[in-house]
Design a protein around this nucleic acid. Structure first.
Lengths: 190, 190
DNA sequence: AATTTTACTTCAAAAATTGAAGTAAGTTGC
DNA sequence: GCAACTTACTTCAATTTTTGAAGTAAAATT
C-alpha cells in the first residue's frame, strides 16, 4: 500500500524535472513500517539543486541589503559569509577551506580584503610558519554580531514551534548528506 | 519536558554561529504533543545559509565535471541550470525569472549564450510581441536528458528508502519556506 | 494621441571564481 | 645534513557570473 503510493508518486505533477521510477528502485522493493503520512511527491536531486540555487541567491541579496543597512561598503556578502564561517575561533586557512568548501585562491582573495578592511587578524603560527592563523578582530566580531542580531528576526519567523525546528533540523541534515554525496562524487566519482 | 530539552538545546555544542534563546521564544512558551524523538540542536538561519552555500558550490562543481564529461564546452553550469529550469515547457522570459529568482539582465545574458549555442529557440509571442517565448531545442533537450540521466545515480544514492524520501521532501519544503521568507523580507522588509 | 507601463535587451563595470604558477616552510630519504 | 618532495598557502591573470543603469519596442492607459 505504501509502496503503491510511493510508486504512484513518481508520476505526480509537482515535479518539474521529470525522472524515472527506476531511479528509486529500493522504494518499490522494500517493506517498511511507517508512523507518518506518506508524500505523493518525489523530490529529485536536480529539483533540490535548483531550489538550493534559488534560496542561495535570495539569501545573498538579503545579506547584501542587511549589510547596506549597516553601512558596510568595503566587503560584500561573500566575504561576510567567510567571516561567519570563521566565527569566534582561531583557525588556519586550511581549516577555513574545509568549512566552506572554498577553493584556496578564492579564500586567499577574500582574506586579503577582509584583512585590508580590518575585519580579521592573521598571525603566522609558530609551530608551522607556513600556516596563517586567522581570527576576527573587534570590528569583524562586531559585524558578525550585527548580522546575527539582524538574523534573529528570521529565526523567530522560521522557528515558530517545535515542528518548525524539527523540519529545519531535518533540512540541515539532509543538506549535509547532499554535501557529502556530491562532494565525494566530485572527488572519487559516484 | 520537551520545552526543557529544546531550551537546553539552545546551548548545545553543534552550533557554530551561536544565537540567543530569545530568538526562539515560542518554543519555550508552547505546549505540544510529539510522536518523534526530540533534537538537541537548534539550527539557525545562518547555519542553514552557510550550509546552502556550501552545498550549492558542491553541486555547481559536480555539474561542471558532468558537463565536461559530456564534452560541453560552450556553456557553463549556470546556463545548464537555466536549461533545467526551462524544462520541457515553453515559457516567457518573465516566467523564467520567477522560476529561478534571476535578475532580468542576467537571464538575458544566459539566454543569449544558450541561443548562440543552439540550446534554445526563441519565438516572439504573437499575442504580445514584447514577450519572447523560450523553449529547448533538440540539442537543449538532449543536454537536459543527459544531465538527468547522470543524475539518476545520485537519486539512487540519496533516496534509498522511504525515510530518505521523506527527509528529502521535508528539506525541499523547508527550503521553499526559506525562499519565501527571505524573498518577502527582501521586498517588504521582515 | 500622448503617457505610462511592461517585457525584455544591451552595455559597462564590479564581484566572484578558477587555474596555473610561485614561494617559503616543513618533511623525508639517503 | 642536504636534495627532493610535500604542504600551506599567495599571487596573478583569466573567465565567469552578477549587477545596475540605460535603452527599445510593444502594449495598456488616460
Amino acid at each position: 500500500m505504501i509502496q503503491k503510493l510511493l510508486h504512484e508518486g513518481v508520476e505526480v505533477e509537482t515535479s518539474i524535472d521529470g525522472y524515472k521510477a527506476a531511479d528509486f528502485p529500493e522504494i518499490t522493493a522494500e517493506k517498511q513500517g511507517h508512523k507518518r503520512p506518506v508524500h505523493t511527491v518525489v523530490v529529485t536531486h536536480f529539483e533540490l539543486a535548483r531550489m538550493i540555487e534559488r534560496v542561495n541567491r535570495r539569501f545573498a541579496s538579503l545579506l547584501r541589503t542587511e549589510m547596506t543597512k549597516l553601512g558596510i561598503e568595503d566587503v560584500g556578502p561573500a566575504q561576510a559569509m567567510v567571516l561567519m564561517a570563521i566565527g569566534d575561533v582561531e583557525l588556519s586557512v586550511g581549516e577555513l577551506l574545509d568549512r566552506g568548501h572554498y577553493v584556496g585562491s578564492n579564500i586567499s582573495y577574500y582574506l586579503k580584503q577582509l584583512g585590508d578592511g580590518g575585519y580579521i587578524d592573521r598571525v603566522a603560527s609558530q609551530r608551522d610558519k607556513r600556516s596563517a592563523r586567522i581570527r576576527l578582530t573587534e570590528k569583524g566580531e562586531q559585524l558578525c554580531a550585527n548580522l546575527r542580531n539582524a538574523g534573529g528576526a528570521y529565526n523567530r519567523v522560521l522557528a515558530r514551534d517545535a515542528d518548525d525546528l524539527r523540519n529545519l533540523e531535518i533540512a540541515f541534515q539532509t543538506l549535509h548528506r547532499l554535501e557529502l554525496v556530491w562532494g565525494n562524487a566530485a572527488r572519487y566519482g559516484i
